[in-house]
Design a protein around this nucleic acid. Structure first.
Lengths: 225, 225
DNA sequence: AAATTTATTAACTCAATGTTAAATCTCTGT
DNA sequence: ACAGAGATTTAACATTGAGTTAATAAATTT
């Protein structure tokens, strides 16, 4: 089983990431600061370490530096986590031996898929470029460019709209309940104003075209073509 | 659990692949020729069929053609297996509805990772999605997609209709009393207007076909085929 | 044939969803 | 830090169709 260690000083973030990764079948350890992180990493060598950069006592860069000197962690993937406005150069992070760089806030979907992509990439085969572009019906969905094209025509979607659309598109035909959608896109069970999803669905239908998203009354929504 | 059917005329290959897939936790059936393969596929619809092309009596292409005509196997992945020097066009194989093409000889690692990749590609991840799909008579009931197919033709059911149908289908032959149906589908003992179930049964018979649901007068209803 | 149970049909009801606009939040550039 | 733009959420109201009911017909049992 894949072991993941998350180090972040915000308990909320820890709980949020732990919950979502465990749901995907990963074994998750958490630490509240760099020092605790190092101790836990030593006691049970993780496959992936997710390091927040800004932390009291010992920041993420420090933890990374220490780990990268220890051959014990040669096969451990390190990824950084940081708030968008903290202006740390990704280059610096990667120079220190980090493998990836994830900016907060991040939805559970994106986070787990980044983790999975890292695992795939690191374990050799399979280019991660392949699954960044989805070709379905007369649509092209480019996850990297956050762009949908319909018959060659560009359609600009907002972030939430795009993620919601991707969720539906990735399993055509599957019916997603509102609860599922909230969990996967919003990353919370707390049900926000209960017309929120409807409004996003409406915008998607307006922008992408009305034919792709179908309502299954009493259950939820699905993508179909 | 993911069910794999391997069809090859060389017992050594069968044993080799079976051993390695079972070690990975798959449920493996084998067949020594195309005809046996088809029979086994019908008796227990597999998630993946691995078909050798060169076989006596009925070759892999034939088996694929027959299977692809049967909507029962709509959710079954078919992959071909052939010796490197047999110069069959991959195009031909894929045109027939095959999903992949593996050349012998193949290492266990590569083979199982190809199988896993297929599962990932075809559905979300490699785990038990298939439990969500019931294959019975000429019907396919996909719980995730909230969809019934009869001979490949989509039948859209409303929520209650679908739940009621699933209840009956999951134990073919079992007679459900109205009280039982209320408890399990409506989740209440309070009996609503006592013609409600009849009306739902009527709609099911109208949409799915009249032959599947039988009335046991004085007791209740059952699914039979 | 009377009684009981189930089938059929159509009308009705209300919760779920659609729609719109305004309020609030979040980013971006200065 | 601030303003403005755009994204997201909330709230209020409209619409729809699934699910229910009710009334009547047909089937089955006694």
């Amino acid at each position: 089983m894949t072991k993941i260690l998350i180090v972040d000083d915000e308990p909320d973030i820890l709980e949020f990431l732990q919950y979502n990764l465990e749901k995907e079948g990963f074994e998750v350890e958490t630490a509240i600061d760099g020092e605790e992180g190092l101790i836990k990493a030593h006691s049970k060598v993780p496959d992936i370490v997710v390091l927040d950069i800004m932390m009291p006592r010992m920041d993420g860069f420090e933890v990374c530096k220490v780990m990268r000197k220890d051959p014990k962690f040669d096969n451990t993937i390190i990824t950084f986590l940081t708030a968008k406005d903290e202006d740390f150069s990704q280059i610096a992070a990667l120079d220190l031996g980090g493998d990836d760089f994830i900016t907060k806030p991040v939805s559970p979907r994106v986070f787990t898929s980044r983790i999975k992509a890292l695992l795939r990439r690191h374990r050799g085969n399979e280019s991660n470029v392949q699954d960044q572009i989805i070709n379905i019906a007369d649509l092209v969905i480019d996850k990297e460019k956050v762009l949908v094209k319909r018959k060659g025509e560009k359609i600009e979607l907002a972030k939430k709209e795009f993620e919601l659309f991707c969720l539906l598109v990735e399993k055509p035909g599957k019916v997603y309940t509102r609860e599922e959608i909230f969990r996967k896109v919003w990353g919370t069970d707390v049900i926000v104003g209960n017309r929120t999803i409807d409004v996003h669905i409406r915008k998607l239908r307006e922008k992408v075209g009305p034919i792709y998203i179908k309502t299954i009354k009493g259950i939820g929504y699905k993508f179909e073509f």
